[in-house]
Amino acid sequence: MNWTWLHRLGSPAIFYRLAGRLQRPCLALAGLLLAVGLVWGLFLAPPDYQQGDSFRILYVHVPAAFLAQSCYLLLAVAGAVGLVWRLKLADVALRAAAPIGAWMTVIALATGSLWGIPTWGTWWIWDARLTSMLVLLFLYLGVIALGQAIDHRESAARACAILALVGSVNLPIIKYSVEWWSTLHQPATFSLVERPPMPPAMWLPLLVMVLAFYLFFAGVLLQRMRLEVLRREWRSRWVRLELGEEGA
């Protein structure tokens, strides 16, 4: 298989220009979908027949939980690409995505706790799903701390990649914890491969919110990666040309 395209895309200059063209549309569409999804889900969707209006927190909780897990999967893939093909841009993606994933995990845990108060009668319980999500947060923090603690860039990239790959074993635990163990956490509310167990008036705004969160992630990630590329390549001629500083 010809991997020339991967190395071409891995060029900092090419990526910087491509990301610049993509980030604004992603953020603009994310903002539009987020506004539509919030109004639709929080005010127009019908209340749940068991949980009433307290279920509406799922319109933030579920997208954040999805994104928290997907982001860590991206870290693992970027780590593998960095270790195998030695692409510097893979480490840029890993380091740029980790803080976003950590915040999504915090949002998922916080909204899950708020949801748990009226549903379970407590804000926290050492449930398998909650505990594995807490482990995910620690993994994110570990990647961030490891990258900042090691001064040598290549050593830091290797260490972060290995931690991301090792920590990825937690992802199937999060996904299947509800099925593997007796747990208070309800089964998946929303699945991309199965018909949602709720009427369209309830799951359509959830789908809009999921798309909004992922587009927001894409836009912010591209922006953070562009800044990191500039920080690493600021001495390069293409950076001076890109910023209009040639000959300054």
Rank of each mutant, 00 (worst) to 15 (best):
L204S: 03
P200C: 10
T119C: 10
L165K: 07
A188P: 04
L184N: 11
A201I: 08
T119R: 10
L184C: 09
C160F: 03
A164Q: 06
R195T: 15
T131H: 02
T183I: 08
A156W: 13
T122F: 11
L137S: 05
T119V: 14
S191H: 13
I174Q: 04
L134M: 12
A145F: 08
T122C: 05
F213N: 04
V210W: 03
V193M: 10
P200I: 08
R129E: 01
M133Y: 07
L192A: 13
L114V: 09
W123K: 05
L139Y: 03
A161P: 02
S182V: 09
W180K: 08
W120A: 14
L206E: 01
W203F: 15
D127R: 06
S168D: 13
P205D: 06
A156M: 14
R195F: 14
G112C: 06
A188W: 01
I162D: 00
Y140S: 04
V169Y: 04
L114A: 10
T111M: 13
I162M: 02
F213G: 05
A159L: 06
A156K: 15
L137K: 11
A164F: 15
A212N: 03
V178L: 06
K175E: 08
L211V: 06
A188F: 11
I174R: 04
L211T: 04
H185I: 14
G142E: 06
Q186K: 13
W115G: 03
A157T: 02
Q148S: 15
L165V: 15
S177R: 09
S177M: 12
I150E: 15
